[in-house]
C-alpha cells in the first residue's frame, strides 16, 4: 500500500534509478577497466596500477591535463566575467519582462552546437568574416592565422557556448539579495562600488560557484570543440581519452585517464570555491 509519507521517496525513484544505472554502473565499469590491461584486441582484467602510473607520469598526458585545466579555467573566467554584468543588469536595472530578457540572452543555445562550431569556422577562418573585414578595412596586410585551429578558437567557441548558462545561477542569487541590505551598506558609509564588493559580491557567491561548476566540469572534459576547432595545438585531454577508446584502442588507459581527469576537475572546483570564499572575505 502507498502511504502519503512515502510518496516523495516514490517520486524520487526514477531519478535515483537513472543516476545509479547511467552514472554509477558506468563508473564501476570505468574503474574495473582502468585496472586492467589491453592485450591487442582483448582486455585482460586485473589489478594493475600500470595505467594510473602512466596517467600520472607520462609527460603527454600531464601536459594535456594541464592544458585542459588552463582552457577550462579561461573559458569559465571569461564566461563569468561576461555573464555577471548581464545577470546584474537583469536583476537590478530591468524591472519589466525579466524572463523575456533572460530568454533573449540564452538565444544562442537554441541553435545546434555543431552548427555553432561550424559557424565559428566561417567567422574565424583564414578567409573568414573577421579576416576579410580586417583586410577590407586595411588594418592587416594578410589574414591572421592565429584565429582558428588552436587553443584560441577553442576558448572562443566554448565561452560563446557556455556563458549563457552562467547568467541564470548568478541572476537567481542576485535577485534574492534584499535591497535593504544595499541601502544599509550605503547608509553606513559605503559608496556604491564598496557596497558591491562587500555586500552584493559575497551574497552572489553561491550563484558564481554554481556557474563555475556548471561550466568548468564540462569544458574540462570537452572533446568535440577541440576536435573540430582545435587543430594540432588545441588538443585536450578529452581528445586523448576519446582516442584511447578509438584509434589507439587502449580502453584501460582511457578509463584511467578519464578517472584521473575527473578527480582533477573536482579538486580544482573545490579549490576555486574555497579560494573565492577567502578572497571575498578578505575584501570585506
Amino acid at each position: 500500500m502507498i502511504r502519503p509519507a512515502n510518496i516523495p521517496r516514490l517520486l524520487l525513484t526514477p531519478a535515483i534509478l537513472t543516476t545509479v544505472v547511467t552514472l554509477g554502473v558506468c563508473l564501476v565499469v570505468l574503474l574495473v577497466l582502468s585496472f586492467g590491461r589491453q592485450n591487442y584486441l582483448d582486455i585482460e582484467l586485473g589489478l594493475s596500477a600500470h595505467n594510473f602510473e602512466l596517467a600520472l607520469t607520462k609527460p603527454l598526458i600531464l601536459k594535456l591535463m594541464g592544458k585542459s585545466a588552463l582552457i577550462a579555467t579561461g573559458v569559465t573566467a571569461l564566461s563569468l566575467i561576461l555573464a555577471y554584468p548581464i545577470a546584474y543588469l537583469i536583476a537590478f536595472d530591468i524591472h519589466k519582462n525579466k524572463l523575456l530578457w533572460l530568454i533573449l540572452f540564452t538565444l544562442p543555445c537554441w541553435i545546434s552546437y555543431l552548427l555553432r562550431i561550424l559557424s565559428w569556422k566561417l567567422i574565424l577562418g583564414y578567409q573568414g568574416v573577421v579576416n576579410s573585414s580586417l583586410m577590407g578595412l586595411g588594418l592587416v596586410d594578410q589574414p591572421i592565422d592565429a584565429l582558428l585551429y588552436n587553443s584560441n578558437s577553442v576558448v572562443i567557441a566554448l565561452t560563446h557556448a557556455w556563458a549563457p548558462f552562467a547568467i541564470l545561477p548568478i541572476y537567481v542569487s542576485l535577485e534574492k539579495i534584499d535591497r535593504a541590505l544595499m541601502k544599509a551598506s550605503g547608509d553606513l558609509g559605503d559608496p556604491p562600488y564598496r557596497t558591491f564588493l562587500r555586500v552584493v559580491l559575497p551574497l552572489s557567491l553561491p550563484g558564481v560557484s554554481a556557474a563555475f561548476v556548471l561550466i568548468f566540469i564540462p569544458t574540462f572534459g570537452d572533446y568535440v570543440t577541440p576536435h573540430l576547432l582545435g587543430g594540432p595545438t588545441g588538443f585536450m585531454v578529452g581528445n586523448f581519452i576519446a582516442m584511447q577508446f578509438g584509434a589507439s584502442n587502449n580502453w584501460p588507459l582511457g578509463a584511467a585517464v578519464a578517472l584521473v581527469s575527473m578527480l582533477t576537475a573536482t579538486l580544482l572546483v573545490c579549490l576555486f570555491i574555497a579560494g573565492s570564499k577567502r578572497a571575498v572575505r578578505a575584501i570585506g
Binding site: A180, A184, G186, L188, L203
Partner: peptide
C-alpha cells in the same frame, strides 16, 4: 548621498547582513 551623510538608519526589516556575524 546617504554614504556621506551624518545620518544613519535602522531599517524596518533590520537589514542585517546575513553573510557576516554579529560583531562584523
Amino acid at each position: 548621498p546617504s554614504y556621506r551623510r551624518p545620518a544613519n538608519m535602522v531599517f524596518q526589516s533590520y537589514a542585517i547582513f546575513p553573510h557576516l556575524n554579529v560583531a562584523e
